[in-house]
Write a protein that binds this DNA or RNA. Sequence first.
DNA 1: CCGCATCCTAGGCGATACTG
DNA 2: CAGTATCGCCTAGGATGCGG
Lengths: 138, 138
Amino acid sequence: MTAPRDGIAALAAQMAAHGTERDAPVRAVMALLGDRWTTLILLVLGMGAWRHAELKRVLAQLSAEQAISQRVLTLKLRTLERDGFVARSVTGDVPPRVSYTLTALGQGLLAQAQGLIGWIQEQSGPIRAARARFDADA
Amino acid sequence: MTAPRDGIAALAAQMAAHGTERDAPVRAVMALLGDRWTTLILLVLGMGAWRHAELKRVLAQLSAEQAISQRVLTLKLRTLERDGFVARSVTGDVPPRVSYTLTALGQGLLAQAQGLIGWIQEQSGPIRAARARFDADA
DNA sequence: CCGCATCCTAGGCGATACTG
DNA sequence: CAGTATCGCCTAGGATGCGG
């Protein structure tokens, strides 16, 4: 045991907060931010309201690489809606006219994501350097 | 188009920052925080230095549910080491005696993770409420 | 004690085709 | 246009056994 064991209680509390069930908010939301598309969707929705197809197009353009599939876009939007981060409003039946916006909660999440992105970007020099060092000894 | 299109440039910059390649630091690190174990490992390493087997045991105890497999623990530690977040030091050959600690960079990452966890936890009430509402209309 | 190799399963994601 | 259904891939992660 090389680590100080005082503070185990505090640690345990934090780990419990992180969530032992897979769908506990903390774990679920962190998984969202870490997945392939959610953060990008939040960034785009941060600019205002978008309809499904537009959102798909913009994501394709701006993220370059390959487009998000319609299935996954719907899936991610559903998840975000369920957790209260985006609002979905329908006007028109055939053809459907659905638009998505961030809720206040969603704007808070976006802010968190942007903070994180900012920090990582500031550290990307050191990170790349560490990788280069590590890969060199291989 | 329901969204304001001014600011597309700024958006594009942010999305580029987020990374178009899968291993760009921003995307990679956010994926790390979102995965099953990395954040928990950071929390534990935040308390000091740990040897591999101890770390495995503590994770098992504190996260309750099932233990991390040895394979994955090694894998995650390698990734964190490669990116410069943890330092690995070996003393002794057979049996090996390996201990892991956070680097300064890793402590920074831990702080980010804790900030995020804190925010999500504060919002977990509204999130759960939103879920309940959503699931009710199903 | 630590790490690697092997095998296996669950889930994320993409592609396509179909309805209202 | 929005959503669903079906399929197939690929990767994260678990279990076990070996070697240094």
